[in-house]
Amino acid sequence: MTASTLPEAALGVLPRADGSAKYSHAGYTVTASVNGPIEAQRRDEHPYEAHVDVIVRPAAGVGGTRERHLESILQSSLTQIILVKNFPRSLIQVVLQVEDTPENDYVNTKLVQASLNFAIMPALFQTSVLALLSAGVPMRATAAATAVAVVPEDGAKKIVVDPSPRQIEIAQSVHVLAFTSQEELLLAESEGDFTVKEWDDVYETAQKICCRPASTKEGMEMVLDEEDAGGPDMRHFLRSTLESKVTADLHWK
């Protein structure tokens, strides 16, 4: 099956959670539920702010160290954008269930002890942000994330956005970056060998994807040449997804 190149999302997919989202992009499909603010357990209770609990569950097998690592990265970056001070002594619980990951047709993966790849990070991050927005949890800003790999090609190095599993395998370094809607860098995690120059290039590419400026002229059809920009436009994607959600939600207002 071909992996969809444009991100797709649906909000409010789980009827019993406060907020939920299903997001698929570059072969990854993740469903998230958000419950909160709810009563926190004694050990998680903080007198001045909400505790953000992130749980990542792989599609097959039980979560291990890698999932805990992803959870801790997500937890610290989500705590930054949620207004945790608004809900002292409470808990905001984000559960991320991975449904699909792109398969590498050239390798037989050991699925039973599946551990999640670093490149799934943008999908996890984006789904959590969408689910938080769907739950109406107050936030400082929205955010967008992307994965960028530096892949050697014909002796030169090429920067690839949303790398495929095959590309990750041969990549020299993989980077995950997230930016808030105020264009601040929220998260930067890297894996592999790279130079400062390469990182600068990666940063620029990621920023272009996450923080493309809003269309200058209202009403004019936006000419979005995906080829030209080298990746999807996360910011507009987020806005259009929420536009439909808000209209539907406010029917009874």
Binding site: N35, P37, G136, L250
Partner: peptide
């Protein structure tokens, strides 16, 4: 002289 954001929360 007031403003607010209309939104739907399920909690």
């Amino acid at each position: 002289n007031s403003m607010w954001v209309e939104y739907n929360s399920s909690r």
